[in-house]
Structure formats: C-alpha cells, structure tokens
C-alpha cells in the first residue's frame, strides 16, 4: 500500500462516500440546520475532489524555481485556484441559508421541517 495507491483510489472513494453522505443527509435528515450542515459536507467533498485531481506525488508548488522549467515537477495550480472561487461560493450559499434559517427560527420557533411546514399551513 503505497501513498500513490491511496491517493489514486482510496482517497477518491473516501471523497465519494463523503459526498454521498452529504447528499443522503440532505434528503433524510428532518432538521433544517442539519440539512444545511449536510449540504456543507457535500460541498466540501467536491472541493476535496478537485484538490485530489490537482495532486501530484513529489511535485512542488507551482512557483518557478531556478533551473526547473519542466512542468512535470510542478503541481497543477488550476484546481486550487478554481476551488478558491468555489469556497467563496459555498460561503455565500451558507450565509444566505443561515439568514433564512434565522428568519424561519424567529417566526416558527423551530427548525424541524415537519413542524415548520405544519405551522406554515396554518
């Protein structure tokens, strides 16, 4: 079991499981706050997935070092750059969602989905 093997298979599987956990949580959990947390887990899984894509054994940060011009020795910076944006997106989604949760909690005094829906229909 080398690191490379872990990186190429097991870690991907772990990420996939994490993603599915998040998705499952969003569908199955009844508490709105927990749904939101599950959503964050799902989003994080995707970020990790991207980072794994950019992973390269024994590579260095892609800052030009004197004498080394062969790109093979550098890690791919693009997935990380993309993920910076994705993290911002996740953050704002979470922010909006939390704001909504505050409104819901203030109005309905609960975050249990069934209870909220029941009170909404009244």
């Amino acid at each position: 079991m080398t690191i490379a093997f872990l990186a190429s298979y097991v870690l991907f599987w772990l990420v996939a499981i994490m993603y599915c956990c998040g998705l499952f949580g969003m569908m199955q959990v009844k508490n709105l706050m927990r749904k939101l947390m599950a959503m964050n887990i799902m989003q994080t899984a995707i970020i990790l997935f991207y980072l794994l894509l950019g992973y390269k054994p024994d590579a260095v940060t892609p800052i030009l070092i004197n004498g080394i011009t062969n790109p093979v020795f550098y890690a791919n910076p693009l997935p990380q750059a993309l993920m910076l944006t994705a993290i911002v997106v996740n953050l704002s989604t979470t922010g909006v969602a939390l704001t909504l949760l505050i409104i819901i909690a203030r109005k309905y005094d609960t975050l249990e989905e069934d209870e909220v829906l029941r009170r909404m229909c009244e």
Partner: peptide
C-alpha cells in the same frame, strides 16, 4: 415568512444541482 421556508428549500435543492 413562507417565502423564507420555500427559499431555503430552493437553496438546498439548487445547491445540489450546482454541485
């Protein structure tokens, strides 16, 4: 208030779509 609930559900589902 009702819009907040429906919108929250939209956040969840929409994020799944985006992901």
């Amino acid at each position: 208030y009702k819009a907040a609930v429906s919108s929250f559900r939209y956040v969840l589902i929409g994020t799944v779509g985006a992901s």
